[in-house]
């Protein structure tokens, strides 16, 4: 469709030219290369902080579970 051509042939019949994306010309996309790191707006800052907290909690939990399974707390989960 990129190169969809609304054309008319000899018989004045409408023709549309449809091109597969892989066969089409390259597009100019929005690039992050020149932008650098994301701007730390309050929502970005708080989201990443919440994520860090979540990961710490989950990490501690997994460690607790591993230690528990290893019998460090005196009992085994069957």
């Amino acid at each position: 469709m990129a190169t969809m051509l609304n054309i008319k042939d000899r018989n004045e019949r409408r023709c549309f030219y449809v091109v597969h994306p892989l066969d089409d010309k390259p597009e100019l996309k929005r690039s992050a290369d020149d932008l650098g790191p994301i701007t730390m707006t309050p929502s970005v800052k708080w989201s990443l902080l919440a994520l860090r907290g979540y990961l710490v909690v989950m990490g501690l939990l997994v460690s607790y579970q591993v230690l528990n399974l290893s019998g460090l707390f005196g009992h085994h989960i069957k």
Binding site: T3, R13, C15, F16, Y17, V18, V19, D23, D24
Partner: peptide, 17 residues
């Protein structure tokens, strides 16, 4: 060259796309 298909109706164009 860009290889493509020619269709003769808007419906066919949408469907093919």
């Amino acid at each position: 060259l860009l290889a493509g298909q020619v269709v003769h109706s808007d419906w066919a164009r949408r469907m093919l796309t």
